[in-house]
Design a protein around this nucleic acid. Structure first.
Lengths: 176, 176
DNA sequence: ACGGGCATGTAAGCGGTTACATGATTCG
DNA sequence: CGAATCATGTAACCGCTTACATGCCCGT
């Protein structure tokens, strides 16, 4: 369901093709919600059937641009207004941490170092994107400002995870 | 796949029934990886077929206790050693934040307040569980110490999200 | 006696991934 | 001309959720 509303919300910015939407997911939304292209194309077909979007243009290479309909805009705004939010987080990294006692101490140290490296790198990426947005490199539209908030969450989340990995590395020295 | 290894790892602590495992997921692992009981029962059947676990006891009310086999223990340790980790995080809360520009300013303020309340509450819960574990209320085994690390991650993650929600609330005042 | 929790499962359906498949266009 | 990228889709499969279904045991 989330993907459906995400596509509608992206189309609320203006017309785009399945390919465009796929790219936007990869570039901007993969932090918090990855989506593959077959899933996107499938959902777009369903949205057309339900008349929440429509084909507004056909370009070269069979490119089809979709636009949101007034009903579609209503539906996505309704979704944003509703407060039934599934707040579950899924993280394989943290799931594994529950079972660290099964690992050899040296393997665990290596593992946590790798985790730290990954997290700090991600945090760095989002901090830089955030800084670029603060310098208004992408413009100053409400959409950009919203994206700035999402990026900030990414930066803070991955910073917290990096600090945790460092802390856990110290703690893990006497697990047994 | 992750669930499969999680079940094996839990059974590495000692025999348990499907019901027990379901409870443990709900109590301790739902922070980072929720699992429903039909999924757990299904996976347990497959693990028996693959001879990674076996029924070691049958109690009242059709209760079946499973124990891990040596092969099973090997498989789960191998999983922990491998470093092909899917580090994607999925968060509907943050996904929504990308589309905040579509919301009415007052609705958005209300929404972010609710988000803050949820996150701070969660953070509080994990901080308290962490503190209890530090007072050794559950004992001092390697398993408890591992769980302590996971709980700490939960506390840090939700604290970061709460701080973000507060920050976003201020920022969101001039989105348009 | 009965209500609540223990305990296990099945079935349908959905959301999501991976692999397969095809062809057009642009650029060097 | 050929490689990379644009662009769209299908099919099989898996993981996971929701709803349904059943019955036993324990405490009050």
């Amino acid at each position: 369901m989330v993907l459906r509303y995400g596509l509608l919300a992206l189309l609320a910015e203006g017309p785009a093709s399945g390919y465009d939407l796929s790219q936007r997911f990869r570039e901007a939304l993969s932090i918090v919600w990855p989506a593959s292209h077959p899933q996107i194309y499938g959902e777009l077909s369903r949205l057309v059937q339900d008349e929440l979007i429509e084909v507004v243009d056909e370009g070269p290479r069979g490119r089809k641009a979709y636009g949101i309909t007034p009903e579609g805009l209503g539906v996505v705004k309704e979704w944003l207004r509703s407060n039934e939010i599934d707040r579950t987080l899924r993280s394989e990294s943290l799931f594994r941490s529950f079972f660290f006692w099964l690992m050899e101490p040296d393997e665990l140290q290596k593992h946590l170092t790798a985790e730290y490296d990954f997290f700090i790198k991600q945090a760095e990426v989002y901090k830089q994107v955030g800084a670029a947005k603060d310098r208004s490199e992408y413009g100053d539209t409400p959409q950009i400002k919203s994206a700035r908030l999402t990026v900030e969450a990414g930066a803070r989340l991955y910073s917290a995870l990096a600090e945790w990995a460092e802390w856990a590395k110290r703690k893990a020295k006497d697990l047994n």
